[in-house]
């Protein structure tokens, strides 16, 4: 039985009809057409789908759309403000923290959440935090550098 869910996504109130089994990531990609959030696995291990729900990073493939009822969701599309990249996005660009770009939205959303809780993360802490985000292109080297620089820029 389809039901209606409503939530705030990137500052806008949205609602749509979903199946009880519809995942939040499907709602974001298919119903809202926000395709910046990606799907890279079916076992909740790649992190390409990370968004913020009520201020916390969440793998949007691990959550049902109906569970996000009334929540405040931020996706990669909502991170830049007034055409200006968020400092974390800017740091990824400056430090070549992305290649194919597929893991990037999840990486950036994860990184922003990390820095919210840890203003000045060490390399070790950054690598630890990224445990749930896979990247096959960069070898993580420049992602780690970008996040450290992004954290400084966010301070």
């Amino acid at each position: 039985m389809p039901t209606t869910v409503s939530m705030t996504v990137n500052g806008k109130k949205v609602s749509g009809s979903v199946e009880p089994r519809t995942l939040l990531v499907q709602f974001i990609r298919e119903t809202l057409g926000l395709t910046g959030t990606h799907v890279g696995c079916d076992t909740s291990q790649c992190g390409t789908c990370v968004v913020h729900v009520d201020g916390k990073s969440v793998k949007s493939c691990t959550m049902l759309a109906v569970q996000a009822e009334g929540s405040d969701v931020l996706t990669i599309e909502g991170l830049a403000k007034d055409g200006k990249l968020h400092p974390m996005q800017e740091a990824f660009r400056e430090h070549h923290g992305l290649q194919c770009g597929f893991c990037t939205p999840g990486m950036v959303m994860s990184a922003v959440d990390l820095v919210k809780n840890n203003k000045n993360p060490s390399e070790h802490e950054i690598r630890d935090w990224l445990e749930g985000n896979l990247c096959r292109c960069t070898g993580y080297h420049n992602i780690v550098k970008a996040i450290a620089a992004g954290a400084k820029a966010m301070a």
Binding site: A80, Q89, P105
Partner: peptide
């Protein structure tokens, strides 16, 4: 040179086949 393709990938506006 910093990459010119990054703008779209960093803002979620890349177009992959499934998009």
């Amino acid at each position: 040179v910093r990459r010119r393709e990054d703008g779209r990938f960093l803002t979620g506006s890349g177009t992959y086949t499934d998009d």
